[in-house]
Amino acid sequence: MNNFKQHSILPGFNLALGFTLLYLSLIVLIPLSAAFIRTAELTWSEFWIIVTTPRVVASYRLTFGVSFAAALVNAFFGLLVAWVLVRYHFPGKKIVDALVDLPFALPTAVAGIALTALYSGNGWIGQYLEPLGIKVAFTPLGIFVALTFIGLPFVVRTVQPVLEDIETELEEAAATLGANRWQTFAHVIFPILFPALMTGFALAFARAIGEYGSVIFIAGNMPMVSEITPLLIVTKLEQYDYSGATALSVVMLVISFILLLIINLLQWWSRRRSARA
């Protein structure tokens, strides 16, 4: 214990840490390890065949491609929304600010059926897109809409506090030195925001990859076309293909862990950058 913990006169360390570790082990770590241990029962070639069948590869391509596109759109509009909320005044701003978190609070199934109703052929938005030849519901485009909704708050909420902390002195200095407004944004403000923007993008992307509830209603779920990887896991599970479902979830878990690592590095970079600015 000597080197492990610094001395403190406060009580309860052993109890608190002991309970924390026990709880985490029982609820999180042991169940998670089950996925890896069950997959280890497969040989490497068996595992490889399961996770590279054409239907599975098509689901990866769809899941990652659409998640990336949705996170990209969220990066652009999230930055815009954060900018407008921090820098400008307009009526109803406080309500808009509060509602940005709606995708965090609204159950995904509710978001899923609402978006499907809106974008289907006779829905509020779908009826205008259908004549133009744009089908959204039951196509990959619908998945894109759902994932954009789900990831919307991430970029706003990571960029907003950094933007609030930027001193106007920096911008005044740039203006004094002859920069126009766009130059000040591109060369002074944007570099400060960039790490936070990347963090928000990565969070939105990570969330989109695992998303299930909002997507399955709007996706149409056609194998090879609009079937996301999490749905494929559920399908395999419903067919009692436990090793298949588990192998796929190990792939998903490994990707999630890599993303988590990247997000932690980005946050560390973001904190260092804003501390210097």
């Binding site: 999180v28 169940p31 990570a206 896991i233 559920v234 999630s256 988590l260």
Partner: peptide
Amino acid sequence: TLIDLPFSVSPVVSGLIYVLV
């Protein structure tokens, strides 16, 4: 990081691991 872990696990996988146990 371990405490934050469940946030980065797909909901479907979160259910599946309990089926495995």
